[in-house]
Amino acid sequence: MRIRAAAAAALASASVLSVGWLVGAPAVESLRSTLTTTLSSSASAEATTTTASGLGTSSGSGTSSAATTTPETTAPAAEAPAATEVTGTFDGSAVQTRFGPMQVSVTIDNGTITEVTPLQLTNDDQKSVMISNRAAPILRDEVLSAQSASVANVSGATYTTQGYLQSLQAALDAAQF
């Protein structure tokens, strides 16, 4: 409910798209349906504006987003001829989040958002990270396994002093790395 309200209130901002993405898939779905409705209702005006500003190309990568365009064009809707619905790919501007800069792209087909794609998400070290850091099922042989020769420490559930004696750690501690 909170997410839907936020989506409606700040529809114009690409940053909200980003936040919606962060919050999770349901939020994005919610945003998507809200955006789609709005875009359809103001599609005629939008078509005019996007054509005028040259952003309406199908493979466009303009700097302003569809979402930003929407509110500007809601008012003069009456003067637009109801021709084609907006189609194209629009990049939102990068916004700062506590996860680092984030940017999304929306693909719109005849006034309907068909895809929301994360374009940019970096952490403090400028290394790309996944938008969603969700833990997902993984097979044992798919887990990261560095060269065992360099491993001096073992992490496991807390062992007692007694448990230590039988632990892998005790064996490694005796080794002269």
Partner: peptide, 13 residues
């Protein structure tokens, strides 16, 4: 069975 975040996948190294 296991759950892991993306950074712990072998192909992410």
């Amino acid at each position: 069975s296991l759950l892991a975040t993306p950074g712990l996948r072998a192909d992410s190294a």
